[in-house]
């Protein structure tokens, strides 16, 4: 897959949908492409993280350790962005992500991510917007869950 195709893919990810073309190109060029076989682990829960992944092909399971053993709580796929929490706020990984099929990802290191965000503030604004939406969504879910109980 060439750089141009990667840029087209990045464009479809909500986090980057409003970011300038040339910045996306830079992001694609500077990040590393990583390939995972089915069953490979992208990262493990409770370990410190130093990279986030943009999924370009394939699917992965999001697995959380519970007292009753590992529990798959969600599945992520093409155009999803995983692992960003650990690189944004220095907390251990909140879940394990394991490839459920052959996967192609763009791996963005923590260092690179922060450099780009500092260099290009509009990217930071976009990320803030997406995170705020996500927060609003979780809060709503929590409220609903509380209401149900």
């Amino acid at each position: 897959m060439s750089l141009a195709e990667e840029v087209a893919l990045l464009r479809k990810i909500p986090l980057f949908s409003n970011v300038e073309e040339s910045k996306l190109k830079l992001l694609a060029f500077t990040s590393e492409r990583m390939v995972f076989n089915s069953g490979d682990v992208l990262f493990r829960q409770d370990q410190m993280g130093d990279a986030a992944y943009i999924i370009m092909e394939g699917r992965a399971d999001v697995i959380v350790n519970t007292p009753n053993g590992p529990l798959t709580v969600a599945q992520v796929g093409k155009n999803d962005f995983v692992g960003e929490i650990a690189i944004l706020c220095d907390v251990p990984r909140t879940a394990t992500v394991q490839a459920a099929s052959e996967m192609v990802t763009l791996c963005i290191s923590k260092e690179l991510f922060f450099r780009l965000v500092t260099e290009f503030p509009q990217m930071a604004v976009e990320i803030m917007r997406v995170l705020a939406q996500r927060l609003e969504k979780t809060t709503r879910q929590l409220r609903e869950a509380v209401a149900h109980n």
């Binding site: 040339s22 190109k25 830079l26 060029f29 500077t30 450099r115 260099e119």
Partner: peptide, 12 residues
């Protein structure tokens, strides 16, 4: 095209 805006961070 990619790096001209980044002249402020030569290490990158």
């Amino acid at each position: 095209e990619l790096f001209k805006d980044l002249s402020a961070s030569p290490d990158l």
